[in-house]
Design a protein around this nucleic acid. Sequence first.
DNA 1: CGGAATGTTGATATGCCTCAACTAAAGTGG
DNA 2: CCACTTTAGTTGAGGCATATCAACATTCCG
Lengths: 243, 243
Amino acid sequence: MAEPADVLTHKLTEHSRLTAEDAAELEAMTYHRRSLKPGEDFVRQGDRPDVAALVLEGMVARYHLLKGGGRQYLSFHIKGDLPDAQSLFLDQMDHAVCAVGEAELALVPHKEIIRAFERRPSVGFAIWRETLIDAAIFRETITRNSSRNTRTRLAHLFCELFYRARTSGLTDGNSCAAPLSQTQIGEALGMAIVTVNRMLQALRRARLIEFRGGVLTVKDWKRLAVAGDFSPEYLHLKRAVRI
Amino acid sequence: MAEPADVLTHKLTEHSRLTAEDAAELEAMTYHRRSLKPGEDFVRQGDRPDVAALVLEGMVARYHLLKGGGRQYLSFHIKGDLPDAQSLFLDQMDHAVCAVGEAELALVPHKEIIRAFERRPSVGFAIWRETLIDAAIFRETITRNSSRNTRTRLAHLFCELFYRARTSGLTDGNSCAAPLSQTQIGEALGMAIVTVNRMLQALRRARLIEFRGGVLTVKDWKRLAVAGDFSPEYLHLKRAVRI
DNA sequence: CGGAATGTTGATATGCCTCAACTAAAGTGG
DNA sequence: CCACTTTAGTTGAGGCATATCAACATTCCG
């Protein structure tokens, strides 16, 4: 299993240039491992964390709690992501973060991260860039959920999940892990479970994807990208991945 | 008319603590004024700006261009906001920014801002925090547009516009500037113009708001906040505003 | 003053949700 | 290991919120 510092360095390298000194600074931080069971919350709305999480394994999701008990999932995160980096500078969590399937985290004290920023501004800039990419993904999510129909939304989500997994080297051929239930997909895309189920079948019938047992298989990337109105510029990666 | 540096300092103070040295650093930057006509684009999707904008006057909006020519408005910005701060660390714009009504900007070269960060990390942290609040607003927008009905969405938008104006001292009694067309409101909330019009009437009839000639008047804040399912924590302000 | 943009109203269509029942799979305890 | 329970997925029927279409009113602006 990879070292936390390496996971982080590798991730930041997807969009930022880091010097050896920068990497050393990341290496010097303290990483505390923590395992999460499926569905387990890691931070809750209102919390004031003093550590930031790095995803080492599995998938993690951010969500708003709705009155009535429902959820609005906001984003999904994989290995290398910092799902609560915002807590570095925003005291209170305005949303929660939970595991989707089993997940493994590394926790780093805020203090150490801030100290790294002060010693090496470029490390700060890289993580800042990471949070800005997060925001770009949120913007795309607004557009996806606000102005596209249910089929397109679903296709777009699969595109994003697959593309990001691919970028991080987490795909196995045309497959990647996506341990989401149909309920969760519905709560991410703002659609009823029944509709998720039907659109899923539509995408399957059209031979664009397979989705079973928490594994997403892309059968026809090109047509899936068209169906999802997907183009990856919003992910702001240094080098585009070919699929 | 206020000096750009003062506008920025004042804004950052809404959520961050700045020392006299920090303020001096902001003061030392070069601000280039620019006026925008209603609807005028200031940056476009794909651009690679080398300056960042500070809103001095009026309202500015970010939007995605949809194929077919439609727009998805992502956020609205008022005096003190930095609507394209992300361009500091993300090369290409993934969205455009335009004026809503007349607007006045101050442009600051990226280089000078970055230099300020390197000399005074806390200035960087304050602007970073600003971009994180942006992201928090995007998250709230996801939830608003994905899991609430049209009436609630509209009420929520008005709540946010009014609350933020109030925070920045831009309200006049129960009124604030909101030079949006119904079309633009529709393109922000992901609803048809006709529906905007009807829900607007519903909110008027319920005596929650007035909205005419680009001016929003809140007639009953408490009930409007309930109708919009609005609570301002996501804006992450140091001190909550009483309305 | 005329034309364009914006707002308003009514009628109709439909995409998606809700409700309800059933099946399949996964987890649990005897 | 099997009965039992729970959770997740599937299918059909019907209704509603919201979109679409179309006409008209109003305001804005050159």
